[in-house]
Amino acid sequence: MARLSFCTGPIPTEWSAGLARRTINLPGVNFGVNTLSQDGALAFGYFQSGQGQGVAEVDLGTGRMSVVATMPGSASGISWMSFSDPWLVWAQGDSQYNLGQWSIHLWNRQTRQVIQLATSQLSDGSYLTGQLVFPIVGHGYVAWSQPASRQSLDLRLYMVGSGKSLTLDSGRLSSPVFAGRNLVWAKFLNGTSQPSFRMVDADTLKPVTVPKVIASPQPIVYLAGSANYLLWTQDNSDMEVLRLGTDNVTIYSGTDVKHPFQFPVLADHFVVWFAADTNTVMDLDTGKAFDVPLPGSVYANDKELVVAKISPPKAAGFATTLSVLPLTNEMSISSCSG
């Protein structure tokens, strides 16, 4: 098991120059980038403007923004989003006073139809306070962990073709991710506080043997997956990454209170996350990272990194500048300050 120490430094010069080369201005709106199309042509995310708030799509070629759906003023915004052409799924916060009150919505880019798949409300009318959801879409379905009771979550799948739903697992579950060919989630072994991984083939939904090297994981909080990696955070201060198809696990540690490991998104050999007071981009090969200051958001996939800088929070007026940087396998983050 390899270990890398996390550290931050300045953004590499070539990255900064690349971001400055391709920018898109969105006057009159604050836009947070929450996901990208696989080909990097489109950005999707949460928007606020003088007219209200909702979900929008931005064509990164033309710079044109179009509204996907609006949400009421009482909604808090978006907690997670996922896109697999032509489907966009998002978790909408329905209360500004309760993180655990949300709904999941699915939009078809071809038909422009939006449907609501689920809410977090339990059968007795209450909510699991603080229970966030991170829905994903791909392989013909939407998958998420649905509160079923005060003691249990269901791993639900909604088949986008037939409209049918099924429950794949129940218990104390994490949100699922796609990693390689598999759908992966974490689960507490019954009656214990020992977590374990569960995997099924993402297409057939047949169980897959969990690699021995991750058979007894340390605590698991967040999961992230990509074509080549499975990532999980132990708590805010440690992160582990398995290179799929190998027994290579790397532990990243040494983060500080300003860089809690949370909301990770894998992009090629990088990971991007919102660290409460900054956005951070880290190279998985080196453990070195740079920050993208707030206000704004950052998202990346294997094709590109998109930075959204918005007008100051709690201020009158809205404006966003998007910067787009193509990612390649040769790029790296190789130095830290200090």
Partner: peptide, 16 residues
């Protein structure tokens, strides 16, 4: 507020 600093574990694009 969306896009601003948040408490740990609170999503970036939400007003809470």
């Amino acid at each position: 507020v969306a896009g601003g600093p948040h408490l740990n574990g609170h999503p970036t694009d939400q007003t809470i």
